[in-house]
Design a protein around this nucleic acid. Structure first.
Length: 276
DNA sequence: ATACCTCCCTGTGGGC
DNA sequence: TGCCCACAGGGAGGTA
């Protein structure tokens, strides 16, 4: 489920695959992922354009070109893939000029580049998709409701963002208008590391707790970003979400499972239970 | 204004 | 065996 580290990984895919390359062909295989633009409009806007330096903002990926900017959001099941044009054709029956890897059922939009590489936006569930921004004001309008980015936010700005929030800490951290980039798994992971109960009121954190939260958030993101995902390691809380009878990897206490803001929430009643 | 609820999307797995 | 439903969760939109 793409969160900040995943999208950072997709940014690297886009950068290495497409930066400096011209879009030769845009193939929309499912218009259901397009927002505010049709297949024809997307094609006309992007074919012949050259990809520039991509950018990530929260969970959004900005594919800048020398013209419009394509905005990608990956929802829960989205991916960005890059085909290697030098990979051997798939199977003995493949035509000589066939793409190395045929489109799969969930490949919704394909971008063929002038060097033969091909980008694929793949998404099983189509919860989000692709937007097109013709200029900076389009871009600002689409991203207007985002809070500061979780990867770069300073401690004081984080404190300020939480200071007025009466809601629960967990749901506040995943509210993109408060802080951009954290999803359900990261929020649980960070709160567990910071030893903070997810149902604390966001604005009630002490200065010491805010420092802890900020430090643990940074450390967690620093580990997850290079991996391009929230690593499901045994030493991480995330590594135990789906265990049948999960226990805390730190203290062995059975983990508690609740629902917060409609999302599954996992936390340790011992590590995160005291001191509030 | 803030906080919470329902729905969208699709595939999977459990229960009967 | 096959059907039905809950569930996964990012975010929009509506309501309290």
């Amino acid at each position: 489920m793409p969160e900040l580290p995943d999208v950072e990984g997709f940014r690297r895919v886009l950068e290495s695959c497409a930066r400096g390359r011209v879009v030769r062909r845009v193939e929309v295989r499912d218009t259901g992922v397009l927002h505010g633009v049709g297949a024809r409009g997307l094609r006309d806007a992007l074919e012949g354009r050259r990809f520039a330096e991509p950018e990530r903002r929260g969970k959004w990926l900005l594919a800048r070109t020398d013209g419009p900017t394509l905005l990608l959001h990956f929802g829960m099941t989205g991916l960005l893939l890059c085909d290697d044009p030098d990979a051997p054709a798939a199977g003995p029956d493949a035509a000589p000029d066939a793409p190395a890897t045929p489109p799969q059922a969930h490949d919704r939009v394909l971008f063929t580049l002038d060097d033969g590489h091909r980008l694929r936006y793949r998404d099983q569930r189509k919860l989000r998709g692709l937007w097109l921004a013709h200029d900076e004001s389009d871009l600002d309008r689409l991203l207007a409701r985002q809070g500061p980015d979780a990867l770069t936010v300073g401690r004081d700005d984080l404190a300020a963002a939480l200071a007025t929030r009466r809601g629960r800490l967990k749901t506040t951290l995943t509210d993109q208008s408060v802080l951009a980039g954290l999803g359900n798994l990261l929020a649980d992971e960070i709160l567990w590391r910071a030893r903070l109960r997810p149902d604390r009121r966001a604005r009630d954190l002490t200065p010491a707790e805010l420092r802890r939260l900020h430090a643990r958030m940074r450390a967690t993101l620093r580990s997850a970003v290079p991996a391009g995902r929230v690593p499901p390691r045994a030493s991480w809380l995330t590594g135990h979400r789906d265990d049948p009878d999960p226990v805390c990897p730190r203290c062995g206490t059975p983990l508690r499972r609740t629902r917060m803001g409609g999302r599954g929430t996992v936390w340790c009643p011992r590590c995160q239970g005291d001191g509030d």
